[in-house]
Simulated assay, not measured.
Amino acid sequence: MSFLPLSLVVITHNEGLNIARCLDSVPFAADKLVVDSGSTDDTVAIAQAHGARVVHQDWLGFGPQRNFASTQAAHDWILVLDADEFLSPELAADLERGLPALMASSRPAAWLRRRTWLMGAPMRWYRPMVGERMARLYHRDRARWTDARVHESLRFDGAAAEFSAPFNHADNPSLVHKQLKVLRYSELKALDWCDKRRPVRMWLTPLVYLSSFLKDYVLRLAFLDGWRGFIIAQTAASYAAYKRMRYYEMRHNPASIGAAHAKLAKHGLEH
């Protein structure tokens, strides 16, 4: 196996069940970096056993954590994966062939396609989970993550390259995991809105719920994925409504922020 001057970067917190598969799916990366925010399971030991350097960084929020991780990479070109993501063999082969030319160019980044597995099988019709286009490969001097606590994005100028073969996302091993993630992401998003003093507009919440469900279930073709499609559309609509209700509570009862943080921390969800 020949290595390419590429850093695979993964941010983790209690990802012992996923991290080995993620790291092993990129065998050609000369540097594998895991930035861990205080795992209490065996994430760190497994990552090290699978060839990764591990750096500890207390949780900063998704965007700032990714930007910190970029500074710790050994190479300028960086591939970012979440611990529950992994390259398909087809994409790994495409990257091995295409990376040398990309690295020699002045392009800032490359678009990849993500395919999501839900309830043990790939989604086949729901558009955000079938070939979702994401910027995950970039030169760290030409791109930067936004500073959002959650739903961060990679920003860059200029035309990016694109690879068509997918990487895989094993989305939440159960609906329990999904609902816990909804709680965590809602809290982070509401805190971002607090920082920006966004208007509350609670009256919009029922309309947001309805429009979100119809957008995902009908326009994004979730209905073609059967009951799994219904479940994902309902979950997305519930998230859209809940984060607005939580923001309303934060503005009307600021003491709830500390109480919620303590409760989430008790269950390992403060990260």
Results as ranks from 00 to 15, higher is better:
210 L>D: 01
155 R>K: 11
2 S>H: 10
262 A>Y: 11
194 C>R: 02
231 I>S: 15
112 L>G: 15
149 R>H: 04
204 L>P: 02
35 V>N: 07
230 F>Q: 02
67 N>W: 08
120 G>L: 07
109 A>L: 00
231 I>Q: 15
225 D>E: 03
235 T>H: 11
129 M>V: 14
8 L>F: 03
110 A>F: 11
47 A>F: 05
240 A>D: 06
18 N>D: 09
253 N>S: 11
1 M>A: 14
126 Y>K: 12
268 G>I: 06
120 G>I: 06
176 V>W: 13
72 Q>Y: 00
22 C>R: 02
156 F>I: 03
51 G>Q: 01
101 A>S: 14
83 A>R: 05
105 S>E: 03
25 S>H: 12
260 A>M: 09
45 A>E: 08
71 T>L: 12
95 L>E: 03
44 V>P: 01
59 W>L: 04
131 G>I: 12
50 H>F: 14
126 Y>T: 14
58 D>P: 03
119 M>E: 12
2 S>G: 08
73 A>V: 10
39 S>H: 01
29 A>G: 06
99 L>V: 02
35 V>Y: 03
37 S>H: 10
126 Y>D: 12
127 R>C: 13
264 L>H: 13
60 L>C: 06
92 A>F: 10
213 F>W: 15
205 T>N: 15
48 Q>G: 09
243 K>I: 01
233 A>E: 02
268 G>E: 08
136 R>I: 10
197 R>M: 05
83 A>E: 00
262 A>T: 07
20 A>P: 04
83 A>Y: 05
145 W>F: 02
